[in-house]
């Protein structure tokens, strides 16, 4: 039943907001009082929120009978999950618990935006999106967005706290930021390539200089500039991190800024806003 699904989705959204808020509070309390147990609880709360977010996506997937990545609202439910994936990977690899409050805040922002602009109904999938490329293209892209968000957070932390070193790994924020960029940029590249191949199958063109494509290119070039100043020109420290952090602006604009462009009305990619 559609009405029940809407109610269930609202309940899940509110629970998610509560879980992420709890994760932030636990982290802040744990860090301020230097009580490790609270920080650990914050990590588990975050993991629980991530699982709940997965339930939300699967529920909508089943209700819609298709992958729920069609509208802005649907991607706003998916983006927090991808931030979760990237955060949990970094937690597992490098024990970067400092990411929890930032990731949770980003999730809250996305979910609150989704709650403010919910889809009135589940829209039908048009023929162009009915492709085997739909899910891998979108998932790869959003995983890239998630990783690049973390690279942004880590770059800002690296600028603020250049001397900080992890007790476990001995690495600073800058190295982690760079690691997140490497992962995010790889995913971004694969996402663009998949999009191009799909575009060729659907419309006969792998590249049409469509505004969304162009901004995908701008994001890609922005990170390429960062990678070149770091890996070729040997920039390190604050100025490299400043380039890294500012590159994320292109990603945000690619995701959410399209409707501001005068050329967007011709775009085939811009999210429907019902």
């Amino acid at each position: 039943m559609i009405v029940e699904h809407t109610v269930r989705e609202q309940t899940l959204l509110i629970s998610l907001l509560a879980a992420h808020s709890a994760a932030i509070l636990l982290w802040v309390a744990g860090t301020a009082s230097r009580r490790k147990a609270l920080v650990t609880a914050s990590v588990w709360t975050f993991a629980a929120a991530f699982a709940l977010n997965g339930v939300l996506i699967v529920d909508r997937w089943l209700e819609a009978g298709r992958a729920p990545f069609k509208t802005l609202y649907e991607t706003l439910l998916f983006y927090p999950w991808c931030v979760g994936v990237a955060t949990l990977i970094l937690l597992a690899l490098h024990r970067l618990r400092v990411l929890i409050p930032f990731s949770s805040a980003a999730c809250i922002a996305g979910l609150a935006y989704a709650m403010a602009k919910p889809d009135v109904e589940i829209v039908n999938l048009p023929p162009a999106l009915q492709s085997a490329w739909f899910v891998p293209h979108v998932v790869t892209y959003f995983i890239a967005y998630g990783a690049l968000f973390l690279s942004f957070v880590l770059a800002v932390l690296a600028i603020a706290r250049p001397a900080w070193r992890s007790e476990e790994t001995g690495k600073g924020f800058e190295e982690h930021a760079h690691g997140a960029v490497m992962f995010g940029f790889t995913a971004l590249t694969l996402g663009v390539v998949m999009g191009a191949v799909w575009g060729k199958e659907a419309w006969g063109d792998y590249w049409t200089w469509d505004p969304k494509e162009n901004w995908a290119l701008v994001s890609w070039l922005a990170y390429l500039v960062y990678l070149h100043v770091r890996m070729v020109r040997g920039w390190t420290g604050r100025r490299a991190m400043a380039v890294c952090a500012s590159s994320f602006a292109a990603v945000v604009f690619t995701y959410l800024g399209m409707s501001l462009l005068p050329t967007a009305s011709e775009s085939l990619h811009v999210y429907q806003q019902p």
């Binding site: 200089w209 505004p211 162009n214 901004w215 290119l217 701008v218 070039l221 922005a222 390429l224 500039v225 070149h228 100043v229 070729v232 020109r233 462009l261 005068p262 050329t263």
Partner: peptide, 24 residues
């Protein structure tokens, strides 16, 4: 030379931005 690489990247980046901000 490395600066040239960045120059190309930044030029293409700015040109691409221009191509979305200005009606084509």
């Amino acid at each position: 030379s490395p600066p040239l690489a960045n120059l190309f990247l930044i030029t293409l980046l700015l040109a691409t931005v221009a191509g979305t901000v200005v009606v084509q």
